[in-house]
Computed example of a mutant assay.
Amino acid sequence: MIPLIEEWFNHPLIQTAWQILFAILIYFIVRAIGRKLISKAFQKPRAKESSVARVQTLEKLLLNVFSYVLFFIIAFNILESLGFHLGPLLAAAGVVGLAIGFGAQGLVSDVVTGFFLILERQLEVGDYVSAGSVNGIVEELGFRTTQIRAFDGTLHYIPNRNITNVDNHSRGNMRALVDLTIPANDKNTEETIAMVHEALETFTHPALISNPEVVGVLSDDLSTTVIRVIAKTENMQQWAVERDIRKAIRMHHETASKTTED
């Protein structure tokens, strides 16, 4: 019985299966250890000039590169175990390289575009951008694809070659823009502007860089008048400031209306 078991274990197919299983096991172990070491390395105290977004971008990029390289190494080992000799395969690849090149033009374009996006720092993890007809927050930037989370929660995977232009809304301070539309015959425009000034005299917000400024009349027609208010804010805080400005103006207007009625 034991000789039969030994013969079964020594069968070439069983040996090959064990080698493949061992290679797969090594892949998952090395990947887990490698990813943990990379994440731990980026959690060390950073220099003051290093932005958090830049560090996050490089961390995710390095994790992607590590996973790809490890995958191909294990895949080549499995092919060797199955009896595919890589030397002739690589030589054949040189013969059919032109055909493969035509088929992989999109992939090459993705990699080249992704390289320059990272090199020129056009995008970073956490940036609010408009890219590839998508608006949202960059969650991951790789050599092949860029992941952008839209404000409705949808995660978009955009091939880098489709990113022909980038509008980055997260560089420097931002502006809160509040446009107030009032009926043209409601009251005197100057009185409305004065009311807005009064409402914002004591307005404060933790994200304000400069106090709100009433620019004046943005547009005017026979039915409505639009008055614009602007304020410089910290990055990604412009929407919160806009909401609070509208609330402050509304509350002041309601208080003034009640006082007038009384």
Rank of each mutant, 00 (worst) to 15 (best):
Arg54Ala: 14
Arg54Val: 01
Lys36Leu: 12
Gln56Met: 15
Arg46Ala: 15
Arg46Ile: 03
Leu21Pro: 00
Pro45Gly: 07
Phe22Arg: 06
Ala23Val: 02
Ser39Asn: 05
Thr57Pro: 13
Ile26Asp: 01
Glu49Asn: 09
Glu59Gly: 01
His11Cys: 04
Leu13Gly: 02
Lys60Phe: 11
Lys44Gly: 03
Trp18Tyr: 12
Leu37Lys: 11
Arg31Ser: 08
Ala53Cys: 09
Glu59Trp: 07
Phe42His: 09
Glu59Phe: 08
Arg46Gly: 02
Ile38Glu: 04
Thr16Pro: 06
Asn10Glu: 06
Arg35Asn: 09
Gln15Glu: 13
Phe9Leu: 15
Thr16His: 07
Phe28Ser: 06
Val55Thr: 14
Trp8Tyr: 12
Lys48Arg: 11
Lys44Val: 08
Glu7Thr: 05
Ile26Trp: 07
Ser39Cys: 04
Val52Asn: 14
Lys60Trp: 04
Leu61Met: 15
Ile24Asp: 01
Tyr27Ser: 03
Ile38Gln: 04
Gln15Ala: 10
Ile14Ser: 10
Ile33Val: 14
Val55Tyr: 05
Ala41Trp: 09
Tyr27Ala: 05
Pro12Ile: 00
Lys44Asn: 03
Ile29Glu: 00
Ile29Arg: 01
Ile33Ser: 01
Gln15Ile: 09
Leu58Lys: 13
Trp8Ser: 07
Ala53Leu: 08
Leu25Ser: 07
Ala47Pro: 02
Ala41Asp: 01
Ser50Asp: 14
Pro45Met: 08
Arg31Ile: 00
Arg31Glu: 12
Ser50Ala: 13
Val30Thr: 07
Arg35Glu: 01
Ser39Leu: 09
Lys40Cys: 01
Phe9Glu: 09
Val30Glu: 03
Pro45Ser: 06
Gln19Met: 13
Lys44Tyr: 07
Gln56Ile: 04
Ala41Gln: 05
Tyr27Cys: 04
His11Tyr: 11
Leu21Asp: 00
Phe42Gly: 01
Thr16Ser: 14
Leu21Ile: 09
Val30Ile: 13
Gln19Pro: 00
Glu59Asn: 13
Lys48Gly: 11
Phe28Pro: 00
Gln15Arg: 12
Leu58Phe: 11
Ile29Met: 08
Pro45His: 06
Ile14Thr: 12
Arg54Asn: 12
Ser39Gln: 06
Gln19Ile: 05
Gly34His: 07
Val30Asn: 02
Phe9Gly: 00
Ala41Val: 05
Lys60Pro: 02
Arg54Gly: 13
Lys36Gly: 04
Ala32Lys: 12
Ile33Asp: 01
Arg54His: 15
Ala17Cys: 09
Phe9Met: 14
Gln43Ser: 14
Ala17Gly: 07
Leu37His: 02
Leu37Val: 03
Glu59Ala: 10
Glu59Arg: 13
Ser39Tyr: 00
